[in-house]
Structure formats: C-alpha cells, structure tokens
Design a protein around this nucleic acid. Sequence first.
DNA 1: TTACTAATTTGTAACGGTTACAAATTAATA
DNA 2: TATTAATTTGTAACCGTTACAAATTAGTAA
Lengths: 137, 137
Amino acid sequence: MINFKELLKEHGIPPSLQRIKILEYLHNFKTHPTADMVYQALMDEIPTLSKTTVYNTLKTFTEKGILVALSIFENEVRYEYNTEPHIHFKCFKCGRIYDISKTFECLKNEEIEGHKVLEHHINLKGICKNCLVKAGA
Amino acid sequence: MINFKELLKEHGIPPSLQRIKILEYLHNFKTHPTADMVYQALMDEIPTLSKTTVYNTLKTFTEKGILVALSIFENEVRYEYNTEPHIHFKCFKCGRIYDISKTFECLKNEEIEGHKVLEHHINLKGICKNCLVKAGA
DNA sequence: TTACTAATTTGTAACGGTTACAAATTAATA
DNA sequence: TATTAATTTGTAACCGTTACAAATTAGTAA
Ligand SMILES: [Mn+2]
Ligand SMILES: [Mn+2]
Ligand SMILES: [Zn+2]
Ligand SMILES: [Zn+2]
C-alpha cells in the first residue's frame, strides 16, 4: 500500500487533497486517461474540483517524473503512472490503449547517430484482441 | 523524377493543381511539416490556397497511404511522404525531427499478445547532434 | 484568537490546431 | 450552351489546453 502523501513530499510537492486524489487515481487505474477523464472521475469525490487544477497537477507530476505523458493519440495527451518501461498498443476500433510488456534495450542506447537519447516511445497500432473476436463472430 | 499527376491517378485521386503541389512539397521537403507549414510554404505559389484544402488533402493522402501521419508532438500532427520504414528522433531543444534509418523487424510481427499490429511508431527524444555541439561550446 | 501573508484552487476567457459546413468556383457532361 | 458534379474557399465552430486574476485555503506571527 503506497502512501501517496509521503510520495508527494519525497518529490518536493506539498500534498494537498486534490494532488493526493489525482495521484491516487493515476496509480490505481492504468487506463492511460486524459486530463478530462481524471476530472470526470474525481468530480463526485471532490465536487469543487476545477479542470485547471487537474491540468496543472498532471503537468507538475510529469515534470517531477511521477507520471509519463503519452502522445499516442493525435489531439490529446494521455497520462500514466511511471513504472517499468513498456510499450503501447492502440486499437483503431475501440480506441483502448494496452500495455505490452516488451523492452528494447537497444533503444536505451545513450547515443544514436550522434543524438543523445533521453526517452523512447514505441506505439503499436492495429486491432486489439477483443475487437478481433467481435469482428470474427 | 516522379510524375505526381500519375501517382495521384494511381491512387484514385483526381489530380488538381492544389493536390499536385501539396504532394510535390511533401515529397521534396522531408521536414515532417504540419498542415500550417505546408500552407505557408505554398501560399506564394498558389495565392488563393485555403488552409482547409491543405487539411483535407493531407487527410485524403494519409487515408490512401501516400503520406504517413506522425504524433510525435503533443498538439499537432506532422506529415511525411510514405517511404521505407524508419524511426524518428525529436530534439527537446530545437524541436527538429530527424529520420533514423533503423528498422525493427520484430515489430513487423503481425501479432503481439493477441493483438493484430498494423502500424508501429518509434519516437526517440533527447538532444540532437547540433544542439549538443552548441551546449558544449 | 486575530491579522497578515503565501500557497493553492477555482472559474472564465483566450489560444491554437482542427473540423464542419455552406457558398463560390472550377471541371465535367450533355 | 446549359446543367450537373467535383473541388476549393472562407468562416464559424469545436475541443483540448493554457493564461490569468479572483477566491479560497493553509501557514505564520502577534
Ligand atoms: Mn502504459
Ligand atoms: Mn521521417
Ligand atoms: Zn479494440
Ligand atoms: Zn536540436
């Protein structure tokens, strides 16, 4: 059981109620949500919550390395709790994003063609397991 | 020398002046431009050009497989002429996108964890060769 | 407690990339 | 030519995001 209040303090972020709840949500639900999805999910629990707070908090967490921002979709940013490196699969039909546990050591290469690599993102796209079954039926 | 008029016909797209020029630009300049960059670049040559036409045309070309849409940046879509598979490196400092000639046969795998893979995008991020030199100086 | 100050949150307006849509223009057909 | 279809254009709207000032809350010192 993670103490989110402590985790925030460790990253130098004063643990307000909003920040704790947002972090908690990203940790518990591995659905790669957008800022709006986080907002919608927490509205009931924190009725006064502002969407701006969600945006600001997600940005802060990402800068501090607690979260990772994903650019799989064209128009919107998705967030996830920063865990072990893995790659993503996005379904063209249902839009879901799946975690694929596959690592590419060769991309951790500090240098490639003279450029210094700090991050690498691998995004697969296609038809997911579930949608394949539906289509086949 | 490519005959863009013929190329469009082969893809079932009637070759208007606008469509030819937009395709020509994407083929000649491998800068992974946004829709707006294409628009700005062609304004002089086609003074009546509308930004909507650029957006529509890029979309059509992508659907027909002539172009590829990239989601490396958070907010905007980048386009490139569909050539041999390669990966991308985006510089955090200057924002340039570099082509890296490295292929991953293992990702061409039709199936991964039950999902059918149709596309794969590999995006590296860091500090590019040029910016490293400037920082070191 | 109270008064004061700093940090945080909130709500609204604005921004930027993109899309919807109808009017205008151009091309194709009879 | 007249008529029709395809294409382009311009404008307004959409949507995710950000800027910013006001409101609220938390922290501190009498
Ligand atoms: Mn993930
Ligand atoms: Mn490229
Ligand atoms: Zn699916
Ligand atoms: Zn650079």
